[in-house]
């Protein structure tokens, strides 16, 4: 099962990014193997539609769960439509690794 964690950088030591559509990076975690891959977000500075574009990417990657700080209304609707689980963490000071550790 693939899980995406929004990240401010390209490594597990990076800070968790509380934005979804405008997150800097996406960490794709394979929950079975524990392997991570990082993708840079091409839409982080988009004028509009960053959230829906990001959902597009999530579906293409075959993600079933997204962990972020919040989701915009358009992204929420689309993620819901494609049965992707949304998880909101409101902790300020956590790294991607902290989040991964919590899941296990």
């Amino acid at each position: 099962m693939k899980t995406v964690i929004t990240s401010t950088g390209n490594g597990v030591n990076s800070q968790f990014d509380k934005r979804f559509g405008r997150a800097a990076w996406f960490c794709v975690l394979d929950e079975e193997t524990g392997k991570t891959e990082f993708y840079e977000n091409p839409n982080k500075d988009a004028q509009g539609g960053a959230g829906t574009k990001t959902v597009e990417k999530m579906v293409e990657l075959g993600v079933s769960k997204v962990i972020s700080g919040d989701f915009g209304p358009k992204a929420k609707d689309l993620l819901d439509k494609f049965n992707i689980q949304m998880v909101i963490i409101q902790d300020d000071d956590v790294t991607v690794e902290d989040v991964i550790r919590k899941i296990k």
């Binding site: 988009a46 509009g48 574009k53 597009e56 579906v59 293409e60």
Partner: peptide, 25 residues
Amino acid sequence: CAEWCEFNAIVVIPPVQFAEVNPSL
């Protein structure tokens, strides 16, 4: 169409055969 759209108003997801225009964008 989605690539041409300057305003990210079109969402196309081939694997699930989904294509939609967002009128607000």
